[in-house]
Structure formats: structure tokens, C-alpha cells
Amino acid sequence: MLAYILRRLLYALPILVGVNLITFALFFVVNTPDDMARMQLGIKRVTPEAIEKWKVERGYDKPLLWNEKAAGAGRLSQTIFYQKSLRMFVGDFGRADDGRDIAGEIKGRMGPSLAIALPVFVLGLFVTVSFALLLVFFRATYLDFAGVVLCVAMMSVSSLFYIIGGQYLVSKAWHLVPISGYVGGLDATKFLVLPVVIGIVSGIGASTRWYRTIFLEEIHRDYVRTARAKGLSELAVLFRHVLGNAMIPILTGVVVVIPSLFMGSLLTESFFGIPGLGSYTIEAINAQDFAVVRAMVFIGSLLYIVGLIATDISYTLVDPRVRLE
């Protein structure tokens, strides 16, 4: 088991390096730092001096991969690749354009992001799996048909409208909760209810339908027929046999996103003014703050890989075939 996890971790390393190279190429090779400076400073009225100053301020004045001028290890370390890309492996993300330390900013913003993403994830999973089981229990009836139609309709609505509509109805028309904002501690609840509910509702359509398909696939298997032939009740069949086996494909899609919950939700956070990582990212995108975007890409990939490993480990928990071989 330990060897298995170790092996997975070793597999993850080249992937992370790959991500690093892709982002490096994207940010520094496709466009030179000069291009970025020109972009930031305005294309027309820009002097070479201003560009040089902009680059020095941000540490982009070094060569990309190999520093001829430096000596010893400095030839490698006094480069953009080392300073801006490799340093991320040790948690050094540098500074944002506004001069703040990115790592510190990320630490502070994780909490609010999780405060929304975690309830959305847990409650959402519970709600959608329950709905899907309900539909499967009433399979091939009008209730099932209506449920599927509703799911398709719900997944055809853009998430933007769930947020806009929810904010308008609940906050503006009915004045139930504040439209946006955030405070720390328990008082946050009143700010969190609406985004969490919207987060759950907007996911119902696609997820319910997806789980329903998985359940239906399982329900036609031979062992389910065996379970019925044993005289088990439909509920026992559904919960013990179908759900137990359906966990395997469900986990594939679910566990992998758990670590990424830290990243928060771009849309929800920006609409509701939640100071989380999602809104941080969106602000950075709008301000074209490449340092922050680069850091978020790196962290996002890292969390995804952690998710992949967690998925593999979770298989061993639900699937004896993986655990014991």
C-alpha cells in the first residue's frame, strides 16, 4: 500500500514538471517580458527605459534559462526559469503587481473559498446522489421521465443565470440575505447561505443525470438479479448492491476535485464579493497580473495531482479488487 502511494507520488513529479514547463513557455517564451511590459505600460507611449524599469522591478530582466554573466550555480539560478518557475516548488510565488506577497495572500484567502466550496461539494453530492437514487427507484415511470426532463432543462441554464437570478430574487426582491459581502467567523453564515444554495442548485441537473446513468448501468448487472433472486427488498438491492458498486465510477469524478476545492469558485466569489482565491484569480486576470495567474496555475495543478492520487487511494477503499492485488 505504502509502496503504491510512493509510486503514485513518483509518477506525479514528471507531471508537475511538465505543467511547470508549459506555464513557463506560455508566460515567457510565447511573449517576451518586453512584450508584457509594453502591454502593461500601454503600447504607444512607451520608452525603452520604462520597459527596462518595469522588468527590473519585477525581476524579469534576467535571461530565460542560462545566465552567461553570472558565475557558478548562479548561471542557472539567476534566470527567469529558476526564479519564477522553479522557486514555486518550494512555495515561493513572488509578489503580485501590487507588491503583496502572493503566498501570504493565498493563505489568507483559502478560508473563505473553502467556506463556500466545501458545503457546496458535500451537500451537493448528497442531494444529487439522493435525487438520482430516487429517479432510479422510480425508473421507467413518469416520475423518472419528468425528473430527467427537469435535469436536462436545469443543465441547459448557464451558471451565470443561477447566480444573477438567485441574487435578484432572494436578496433584492425578497430581502432575505445580503446581496454580497463577507465577514469572518460565524456571522459569515448569512453571506454564505445564498452562494451555497445556488452552487448546489446549479449542479443538480448534470450531476443527477450522470449518477442516474451510472446507477442504471449497475442495476442491469447479473449480481443485482442474484440479489433479487435472494429475496432482498428493492431498497436493500439499491443501497447495498447498486450503490456499493456504483461508488467506483462515482469516485472517479468526485474525489479528484476535493483538493481543488481550495481554489474556490471564480464566478460565485466574484458575484458575492467573497474574498477567496476564486475572486483573487479573477481580479488577477482582469488586472493581467501574470505573477498571480502563474501561481494559481501551479497550485491548481498541484491540487489536481493530489486529487488523482487521492482517487487512486480511494479506489482501494471501495474496490477490494484494487486493494488486494
Partner: peptide, 22 residues
């Protein structure tokens, strides 16, 4: 796997920002 591991929105954001510069 490598491409997948970069969060979609961020990869798109990064690429679009870069393309904008180009």
C-alpha cells in the same frame, strides 16, 4: 494527464492573456 492537471479556466485565462499580448 499534464494538460488535464492544469485547471481549465486558468489554462484558458493564461493562454488568452498571452494571445491578447500577441
Amino acid at each position: 494527464t499534464t494538460l488535464n492537471s492544469i485547471p481549465g479556466v486558468l489554462l484558458i485565462a493564461a493562454a488568452v492573456l498571452m494571445m491578447q499580448v500577441v
